[in-house]
Amino acid sequence: MPERIRRRSLTDTALWVWGAVVFLFLFLPIAVIVLYSFNNGRLLASFDELGVQAYVSGLQNDVIIASVMTSLKAATGTALLATVLGTFGGIALARATKGAKWPVLLTALLALTLVTPEVVDGIAMLPWFVTLGVDAGLTPFNNGLFRLVIAHTAFSTAIVTFIIRARMAGIDSSLEEAAEDLGATKWRSFRDVTLPLAGPGIFAGALMAFTLSLDNTILSSFVQQPGYTPWPVYIFSAVRVALRPEVAAISTAMLVLTLLALALVGLVLKRSGNSSSQIVKTMAGS
């Protein structure tokens, strides 16, 4: 018996050590970037002296600020558009009559967007935008920001839809039926009953769409227009020339802001009575 207890605690110890090692691995490069953002030197990779020079010059660099703003605007637009599409799609899928064919087709189409490599989306969007904007004369398609929002929405709608469908699948449709029995119109029951029920899913979907858009590099590099270079594409082009500490400084600032925003969201959710595990799962969309 004692032998058994000792063996148990050994595997447990190994698991705890493994957990710590994986966390170290996950945070190592982030810690490095945060540390190197305080590099006063000229090049990011060679640490010169400690200082906040990079933050000062980064915030004064118009090109950097413009690209960060482009990314934030595109992410906001994507979150709005993808959430509207995903909410309609997700609720429709979850509430579809059994045996109907269209939900299977729509799910297949959305799943197809998930398994399509991003570079394929990119090369497909570029000629399409040229066709629509130049050949068909639909001028919005020549606008860089518009292009980014349209392209990012196309690849995040599937995710938002599936998050909301999963949320609605767990909720009995009897509440909506009750509302209609009580005399509410279809629209009224949708607005006053279905939408609030889908709330956490909608919120998680919007957050996910925002993050995906903010992080997107490959697709953006294909559809971007001069004057609307999003932040990741700016960094990617800087990698090829020379990386300066400003990139690390602005990234660190963005990370801190993101974490603060998420902590705030978590706090609000906690106030509304969710457990911490639930909150994180909501924010991760699962």
Binding site: P29, I30, I235, V239, L255, T258, L259, A284
Partner: peptide, 17 residues
Amino acid sequence: ALVLVPFWTNFLVRTLG
């Protein structure tokens, strides 16, 4: 939540790390 922090850090920036 900590596991998700890298997820919310820019992909390219992590690679630069």
